[in-house]
Design a protein around this nucleic acid. Sequence first.
DNA 1: TCGGTTGCTGAGATCGGTTGCAATAACACT
DNA 2: AGTGTTATTGCAACCGATCTCAGCAACCGA
Lengths: 331, 331
Amino acid sequence: MPDLSIDVVAKAAGVHRSTVSRAFSRPEAVKSETREHILRVAEGLGYTMSPLAQALRTKTSTFIPLIVPDITNPFFAELAKTMTQAADERGYQLLLCVTNGDPAKTDGYFTAMQAMYAPFGIVAPSTKVDTEALKRFDFGHKVVVIDRVEGDDAVPTVTVDSRRGIMLALEHLHGLGHTSIGYVSGIAGTHTAQDRMDAYLELSAESGSTPVVLDSGSDLDAGTRGAEHFLEMDNPPTAIIAANDMVAFAVMSALGQRGVRVPEDVSVIGFDGLALGARFNPPLTTVRQPIADMGHIAIELAEKQNADGSVDHIVLEPELLVRGSTSGPRK
Amino acid sequence: MPDLSIDVVAKAAGVHRSTVSRAFSRPEAVKSETREHILRVAEGLGYTMSPLAQALRTKTSTFIPLIVPDITNPFFAELAKTMTQAADERGYQLLLCVTNGDPAKTDGYFTAMQAMYAPFGIVAPSTKVDTEALKRFDFGHKVVVIDRVEGDDAVPTVTVDSRRGIMLALEHLHGLGHTSIGYVSGIAGTHTAQDRMDAYLELSAESGSTPVVLDSGSDLDAGTRGAEHFLEMDNPPTAIIAANDMVAFAVMSALGQRGVRVPEDVSVIGFDGLALGARFNPPLTTVRQPIADMGHIAIELAEKQNADGSVDHIVLEPELLVRGSTSGPRK
DNA sequence: TCGGTTGCTGAGATCGGTTGCAATAACACT
DNA sequence: AGTGTTATTGCAACCGATCTCAGCAACCGA
């Protein structure tokens, strides 16, 4: 590969660099005859433009950072999957940024994204802190957030309707005959986590039952602690809503190890709709978030903002996914 | 941010561009006094070098593509996690590339990585095809593979000792009293998958028992099919080795739905050592691969190759992780 | 036929760095 | 003092594109 630059193509096609450049990036500005010739020659040489050079000159690259707290969490993994797809459909390259919940890292990624002229970035926050970091950067570089954001204004967001999701779960459980329904919270700090919890509290109260929060911790051990708490209760709930699928897994696992059977002894319902849930033992009933859509929409929002400056806040509808972890109450 | 370029720093520090450049990238070539002054000024301005410009000029960037078939598979997710960490410890940026098993995509990523002067890439293959794609690119750009590679020569690799891993599993099961041990294969096409299967076949034969391959499919449904096959047998094995954790999950889930209990009715052991396994129901006994090490080593190998041209093939030792999915045989 | 578009292409500066080479300063040695 | 290093720094070309500006030809209407 004798270093294919725009100049060698230009020479080979007998035109000037600038014409080749136009042939690629502003086709209508070149006589169609010339353009096709150039394209043909380029094709023959196996030429592609250097994204780096382009980025340097135009001050806008195709690198888009995906900032997540933990790629190991299947929710973020699924998000990453659909995002990569959406991304390279549109010629973007996803930069995987894992913060591990460390705000310093988040900051670092933001400055890095400026440095490489990222047109925008996607943030799936673990804590409110992440979204606050945004402000320090004046939104100078556009970002879209997979969560609600305090104040709901300057930055585009996409989320699912937490309240509706919890409602779905509650209705399903009520329909099955459950009246005492506990809750184990998930990754704390996120607005959506907060919203789900609030929704649970409110809706429970509305339906006349007293809410039972088994654990409100932030980590995965919330599941274990929740299960323990459950076992210590004199009159434990007959069903448990977990703030997200991972926590639901943890709950079921902890319960299982202590001899409690799902759904025979207690029903468990998650929130996320991870594919993995279908392979769990038992398969997890859950409130599905349209993760795939979220990825595409996030990118669309970003592009839209770049185009006309509009910042939208999309709220998607969740959906109930009934699998094997819920059934009628024990007695 | 009035566009911080090297020139503004130079002016502010009263030196020439080239001196600033050296102060950063070849510190020993600048009088320490001057260097410190420059660095201080830069610091004050909040200046960082443009990785794009650097890459363009030096023809080597800090972008390193991580090519995986499916980030949704926790094995690759864990790999990605440790790799991002290893990567940004050394100032690299990970580009997430998901092939979905499509060789065309793999090819695309290879050309892309050339275009952006990636110093090397990491490939965690789904099929042998992936490794063959490498040859089409003359290894012109360095790549290290998380798998064994046909011929074992031109490209650095890191894997764990498949045979040893299977041996560990077998020994554990034998120790528990199992004599009839089945096998469900995993993602096909990979050399390691092949190796594990071969090891199972050989070691079973050596120990005098007849191997029982419950399913040799490539997809996740192998688990389901394996379970069904298991149920149809007159004299089913008392334990099952799954080629990887995901398949083990699927097997246990399918078994569970059909009323077979693990480990009471049948023991199941996986291969990978995913953190997720600890949260499964029951917690999965498995052969642990040192995934975190693999990530770091992969990057080290790549750097080493770039430095002195050496290509190494590292084989790591697996380790048994006993959790709850194995116990003595039923009767 | 001539001034006024319009369409297409070439020149050349520029993006933000790097690096070989030349210039100068400083120091060592005889 | 004279000459030969050696350490520092400046100069300017270059990496591979983009884009403004200008040049030129063809076309239009009066």
